[in-house]
Simulated scan of single mutants.
Amino acid sequence: MSQISYKDAGVDIDAGNSFVDNIKPLVKSTKIPGVLGGIGSFAGAFELPKGFKEPVMLAATDGVGTKLKLAIDSGIHNSVGIDLVAMCVNDLLCNFATPSFFLDYYATGKLDVEVATNVVAGIAEGCKRAECALIGGETAEMPGMYSNDDYDLAGFAVGVAEKSEMDRVSLVRAGHKLIALPSSGLHSNGFSLARKVLFEKMSMKFEDDFNGKPLIETLLEPTKIYVKTFKRLRNEIVAMAHITGGGIVENLPRVLPKNLMAEVKKDSIKILPIFELMSKYIDQEEMFRAFNMGVGMILVVEDANVAKVLQETDGYLIGEIKEGKREVVLV
């Protein structure tokens, strides 16, 4: 009777081992103080940072959504890992947590070592931009669950905050100003709608010229990571809102008390060209609910600190906090 191997069933253990060897130097490149040991154990280890009076560990998890479909179809895999890190660490910042370490989960139908290595290279680059360590992850080869070329990503970030600094909502007051930090593009939200408009409605192609470069480059531009800005200006920031799915109108209220509203001047928003292109086919209200519109993070800042924040970032004023029901009003 012929014998059947795991490889016959679609899982290549040797490919998995080769992949681990490939990513060891990538993981090592993200090492920061606090990392204990290396990859290869059953769990990653990170020492709790010193200097906190009441340290609280915060965790955030996210994926990249259907932006992955563009990476897979275009064969460009080295930037979605940055997106994965960004979506997690930017959320941590909103609770005033400094990212410490990151874990990833990579699932595919058939492990392509080169593709997977490129993805993890992006994750490592994202960790370096976020000044956190990649301390572990999991790779799953699951034939029958995914087609051979497809893969999916999930990320998990852990950071540490001072307990007394976590509640930012209670610090927000009427009169505080809203400063927009520009996004680098779509970031990792709204791609199902973007793909439908650009490729189905407009019949555009990856290689079509858009603002002097192929359209696919604009679409795959990685999500901006705001960790260094946060570390530099945390004492001047009252609160932060990460503008992801739901846009400004659904994310900014998350940092507002019940009795305060955010008045945002639409004409002040520096809308990126890719959003202007799609707005020809999408209602404006839907645009503001699906996309970041060029704003990746919004800072709530006291009047006295506005000048410094504007001077030390590429941010700009888009509105202020006023008395009213907890919502965003676009004027």
Rank of each mutant, 00 (worst) to 15 (best):
V89F: 01
A290I: 06
A116R: 06
G40W: 12
I4L: 08
M261N: 09
L260W: 05
V35T: 03
G296T: 07
F96V: 00
F230M: 07
I39V: 15
E236W: 07
K31I: 12
F288G: 02
I274M: 11
S147E: 14
E47N: 05
F46L: 06
T223I: 01
M240V: 09
P55G: 10
A97M: 11
L220E: 14
M87F: 04
D62W: 13
A194P: 00
V249Y: 14
K50P: 00
A180V: 13
F199Y: 14
G137L: 05
P33L: 05
D73R: 09
E217V: 11
R129H: 13
S203K: 15
I321F: 07
A107N: 07
P273E: 03
V255D: 00
Q284P: 04
V64H: 00
L256T: 00
K228A: 10
D112P: 10
G315V: 06
F101Q: 09
M202D: 12
N235K: 10
M202W: 05
V197Q: 00
C132V: 12
I237S: 04
F210P: 01
G37A: 08
I72M: 12
P253N: 08
G155S: 11
V238W: 08
C132I: 03
V113G: 09
V197A: 03
G296R: 00
M287I: 04
K213V: 05
N22K: 08
K325C: 05
A157C: 02
M87I: 06
E327F: 05
K224E: 12
G126R: 06
E217T: 06
T61L: 01
D150Q: 15
F42D: 10
S5F: 08
A107Y: 04
L68V: 12
T98V: 13
S29D: 15
A239Y: 02
H176F: 08
V255M: 10
K163N: 11
F102P: 00
A59R: 08
L103S: 03
F206W: 13
G324K: 03
K308I: 09
L181H: 06
D267I: 07
I321H: 10
G319A: 12
I4F: 09
S74V: 10
F275M: 06
G319T: 06
K196M: 03
K163R: 09
E285V: 13
